[in-house]
Amino acid sequence: MASRPVFIPDFDGQALVSTQFVDFQWFAGLSVSQKQKSVTALHQAARALPGIGKVLEVSTKSPEPLGAALSAFNLCFDSLMLGHPLSVECAFQGSKVFEQGGPFTDIYAFTSRDAKRDERLRISGRLTGFNFANVQWPLEPQTAFYDWLYIRALKHRTDLADQLSDYSAFTDIEFNPQKSINCQAYSVALFVSLLKRNCLEQTTASPAAFLSYVGARPVVSARGDDVSQGRLF
């Protein structure tokens, strides 16, 4: 058995996203087929939650083309400063600033997989913040910079965003909240919540506007915590 979060857009309350942890049967193994068996089990358990209908897996292991396209490895936004599309993953990794170096902006031209594996991200000391397009981002709220990058990319992909209304919750089978903070499925749920509340354009007008609107809002998780936006539990 395993436990993983299910991210549910909240359209009315103070919280923008509700996080519910569910237990499900885990299928061991690194193959795509094994991962997708775990996805199926996770979604079956998620649909037992009140108000949950269709659930979308957002990762490269998603059985649905939409979910795979929404992976941070695949989702790109056009970057005029680079002259080529930039994946969310490369933008995030290449913008990290450490005690002993960074941002390593050459990572912007890497593949998403190579970007995440770059050795400098592990040997440059403590992470101190982010610098993207000459804008400094703090570490708090914890997922604010990642969510900003993801949402800015997704809002220009209307071909993908228009399909999200069919789903009531989102998962990422690769995300383990005991080991990671940022989660692409959470970012999708946040995007849907902002869109449905008719405040997407307002909140993405600038980094300051995003931090002002999103930063003080709570996240309600299955563990009963009520903490600042950007924390998963």
Score class of each variant (00 low, 15 high):
169 A>I: 13
127 L>V: 13
193 S>H: 10
201 E>F: 00
42 L>P: 00
92 F>R: 06
189 A>I: 04
49 L>E: 01
140 E>H: 15
152 R>Q: 15
5 P>G: 01
97 V>K: 13
102 G>N: 07
127 L>P: 05
129 G>W: 09
57 E>L: 03
210 F>I: 00
27 F>A: 10
232 L>I: 11
19 T>M: 09
104 F>P: 00
179 K>I: 12
4 R>S: 08
109 A>P: 06
186 Y>M: 09
8 I>Q: 01
69 A>R: 14
199 C>W: 00
197 R>D: 08
57 E>S: 08
226 D>W: 11
35 K>E: 07
133 A>S: 01
12 D>Q: 15
63 P>V: 13
140 E>W: 11
225 D>L: 13
153 A>W: 02
82 L>T: 04
227 V>A: 04
162 D>M: 08
172 D>I: 07
80 L>V: 14
20 Q>H: 12
115 A>G: 03
36 Q>G: 06
46 A>T: 02
191 F>L: 04
224 G>P: 11
218 P>A: 09
204 T>H: 04
141 P>E: 02
174 E>R: 05
150 Y>G: 06
1 M>N: 14
152 R>W: 00
83 G>K: 08
43 H>A: 03
20 Q>Y: 06
180 S>P: 02
206 S>T: 12
211 L>F: 12
15 A>Y: 07
172 D>A: 12
165 S>A: 12
226 D>N: 06
58 V>N: 09
78 D>L: 11
24 F>S: 03
128 T>F: 09
96 K>E: 07
33 S>L: 03
189 A>N: 05
131 N>M: 11
185 A>V: 13
84 H>C: 10
22 V>Q: 06
91 A>K: 07
54 K>S: 12
188 V>I: 10
145 F>L: 12
100 Q>N: 15
100 Q>Y: 07
173 I>K: 04
102 G>V: 03
199 C>N: 01
192 V>A: 07
69 A>Q: 14
178 Q>N: 09
126 R>V: 15
19 T>Q: 01
59 S>H: 09
29 G>V: 00
209 A>Y: 03
221 S>W: 08
82 L>Q: 10
92 F>P: 03
36 Q>D: 03
127 L>E: 14
195 L>V: 06
176 N>H: 09
163 Q>M: 14
107 I>K: 03
73 F>W: 15
126 R>C: 00
